[in-house]
């Protein structure tokens, strides 16, 4: 018998491309920024980072995450909104939350094309310095670091056990 953790792993592996594509399409269409998968293993967050999470619940249970260090966040938000947005402002959370909303919407539509149905939640946005994302012991996760003209950023997914063996 295959454990549910292994099935969650397989699900993430199988749909890794849709996470990468959704992130690239989001930044290209909303911010006019090209992002490419980077070789770096770590993103520096000492100067501040903004993290936005949306849950996808249905045939699978995923949380999709966008993480942007302060410099990348400021550049992406300015391109998105068309005006400068200070990193510490409320508008910054709004802009990155909306970027994540579009990212999650694209992930949802790509999963839908493979027969996996999910609903998406509202975004939860956190701003901090030196933030580290800790994943629950029984959850499976994947993090893809991207490089862009504005600096590094990452997209991630955390998968729960429920319905991990469905679809795909």
């Amino acid at each position: 018998m295959i454990s549910s953790e292994t099935l969650a792993d397989q699900m993430i592996d199988r749909h890794c491309a849709c996470i990468t594509e959704a992130a690239q399409e989001t930044f290209a269409s909303v911010c006019g920024m090209e992002i490419a998968v980077a070789d770096e293993q770590r993103v520096e967050t000492r100067d501040g980072v903004i993290l936005s999470v949306i849950s996808l619940v249905g045939d699978i249970e995923w949380s999709v995450i966008l993480g942007l260090p302060s410099g990348t966040a400021a550049a992406a938000a300015a391109k998105f909104a068309g005006f400068e947005i200070p990193f510490e402002s409320e508008d910054m959370g709004d802009a990155i939350g909306e970027l994540t909303n579009i990212f999650a919407g694209l992930v949802k539509s790509k999963l839908d094309a493979t027969g996996i149905k999910v609903e998406i939640s509202l975004p939860s946005v956190v701003r901090a310095k030196g933030l580290e994302v800790l994943v629950q012991r029984k959850a499976t996760s994947m993090k893809i670091i991207f490089t862009s003209e504005a600096g590094l950023l990452w997209a991630g997914v955390v998968a729960g056990q429920a319905a991990a063996g469905l679809g795909g």
């Binding site: 938000a77 998105f80 909104a81 068309g82 947005i85 709004d94 939350g97």
Partner: peptide, 12 residues
Amino acid sequence: DDSGIMRKLVMR
């Protein structure tokens, strides 16, 4: 829209 930025973008 719950996003102030999106409201601004729509209006613009």
